Simulated scan of single mutants.
Amino acid sequence: MASRECVVCAGELSGSQRKYDKPECAKRGARAEWILKTYGITLAEWDLIWEHQGRCCAICKRKPRVKEDGTEETFHLDHEHAQGQAGPVRGILCPYCNTRLVGRLKSADRAQSLADYLHTPPATVALGRVVIAPGRPRKRRVTARRKRTAARKV
């Protein structure tokens, strides 16, 4: 019988393990699948962008904070929302810059940093190509009438 390997770390699988040998590998594998499905890039390409930016936010240059459990804060992969959720991947930002900076710029230096980031996105420079993120599928809205009907059936 051939030995089976973890798809992330190549460690040996035992018993009922299907793809991953440790919970950390399962978490990294799930993240890799999500990034590929949502943004159209691999985890290796994400790491390439991250290294190209100096392992910090592309706009404010802040490094990720270390949480109490010893893990780093998760930064966001930013992309243009040209057609709904779909658009070119631009770079990796801290949560603040990604969600609140645009429209609330407080200094000319940050505004210039933002302008430089939008003109020459680190992802395009690091990868040597423009990657169009396919975006998440739209959620189907449930009307109040359907909710009431479903509640009566239960």
Rank of each mutant, 00 (worst) to 15 (best):
D116L: 09
H81N: 05
G103D: 03
E33W: 05
A115I: 06
R152V: 00
Y96G: 06
G135K: 07
L101F: 02
W50A: 07
K67F: 12
K139V: 12
P64C: 07
V8M: 11
D47S: 10
T143L: 12
R141E: 13
E72V: 03
R104A: 13
L114Y: 03
E45N: 03
D47V: 09
E12G: 14
R4H: 14
L36C: 05
R31Q: 06
A126G: 03
D116K: 12
I49F: 00
R62T: 09
K67H: 13
A123Y: 00
W46K: 02
R152H: 00
K63S: 11
K106F: 09
T74W: 08
R129Q: 09
Y20V: 09
R28N: 09
G15W: 06
R148E: 06
A111V: 01
C97D: 09
R129M: 09
G70V: 01
I59L: 01
L36D: 01
I49C: 04
A10R: 15
L118Y: 08
S107K: 10
R28G: 02
A126Y: 02
K147V: 10
K61G: 02
E80P: 04
H81R: 08
G87E: 06
K19N: 15
C97S: 04
N98H: 15
P95C: 05
L13Y: 11
K37S: 11
R31F: 07
S14K: 15
A151H: 09
A32Q: 00
A108W: 11
M1N: 12
T99V: 06
K61Y: 00
T149K: 12
I92T: 04
R31N: 10
C97L: 04
W50N: 07
C6F: 05
A151V: 07
P23M: 14
D69V: 02
C56T: 05
E68R: 15
L127M: 10
K37Q: 09
R110D: 12
A123E: 03
K153Q: 02
T149S: 11
E45L: 01
W50C: 02
L36T: 05
Q53C: 01
A150F: 01
V142T: 06
V102T: 13
T124K: 11
S3L: 15
V131C: 09
E12V: 15
R18T: 15
T120F: 13
G11M: 08
L101V: 04
V7T: 14
L118P: 02
A82F: 10
C94Y: 05
H81T: 03
V125K: 14
P121Y: 02
V142C: 00
A26Q: 14
G91Q: 05
P121Q: 08
R152T: 00
E72W: 05
Y117W: 03
H81M: 04
R129E: 07
G11K: 12
L114H: 02
K106V: 11
T120Q: 14
Q83G: 10
E5Y: 13
A58Q: 03
K147L: 11
F75H: 06
W34C: 09
E68K: 15
Q17E: 15
Q112V: 07
R90F: 01
C60L: 05
L93S: 03
I59E: 00
H52M: 00
Y96C: 08
A144H: 07
V125M: 11
P122E: 05
E80I: 08
H79V: 02
A123T: 01
G40D: 04
E24L: 11
S14L: 14
